[in-house]
Amino acid sequence: MKRMSVGAHIRSLLLAVYALLTLYPLYWLFVSAFKSNQEFFRHPYALPREPVLANLTRAWELGGMGRAMANSAIVAALALALTLLLASLPAFVLSRYRFRLRGPIMAFLLLGMLIPIHSTLVPLFIMLNRIGMLDSYAALIFPYTAFELSLAIFLIAAYMSSIPKEIEEAALIDGMGYWGVLLRLMLPLSAPALATVAILAFLRYWNEFSFALVFINSKSLKTLPLSLTLFSDGFGTDYGLTMAAMAIAVLPTIVIYLFFQEQIMKGMVAGAVKG
């Protein structure tokens, strides 16, 4: 071991440098958010000498980031609730019962993970337009849910398969109906899988851009990523302000990541491998 130590140290150093390189843009973003425009130009890469909070408050009010955050929160929360409901019910049936249509349904669900999502923008736009759903929260909630369902169902079904069947057989004999077994027994037992699905779905909905770009038109309904692009077009030359707006948008996801790293990594990898 001792012989290796010089090499090992160099290796660790290089790895640390790579990690810092990955994190540097993020660091730069947060540092710049606290700089006035003059300071940003004078010392673009130094720590702020006189940190200013004005960027954050101005971005929140003037740039409508508060409104955008509320929209993102509403859309993400409603889509999340719908996703958990519409994924856990089929997941239970697919994990517990063997029936003729099970295979075809699984294949049908797998299809959704292979579809290049952007190829649905135009037809979905036309469909939503026809049913009068364009430019509303629903125009985002339903497509978001639909594209998250495959992964959500697979993750929950895989977890439910690992729960021993004896528990629910006993409950059925005790006179708990199918709905009782599902709602009062299986769902609480599947809480870890539901949590993973919820975290992944929340991140996806919070960050989603292209559907919001195409389906939302009213300024009052725009979600965070969409407002950010408009923000950088409008206030692009006020760098401190734009950076502050980005910091506001990215902070919730980073906090979630710090708490649920393991689940997020595993879940995203599972989604990527299947898709």
């Binding site: 990955t22 994190l23 993020l26 973003l29 991140l203 919070w206 960050n207 851009f209 965070l224 990523p225 969409l226 950010l228 692009t229 980005m246 948008a249 990215v250 996801t253 980073i254 979630i256 990541y257 997020i264 995203m268």
Partner: peptide, 9 residues
């Protein structure tokens, strides 16, 4: 980490 950030950011 970049995986959890919005692509827009």
């Amino acid at each position: 980490m970049p995986m959890v950030m919005s692509t827009v950011v």
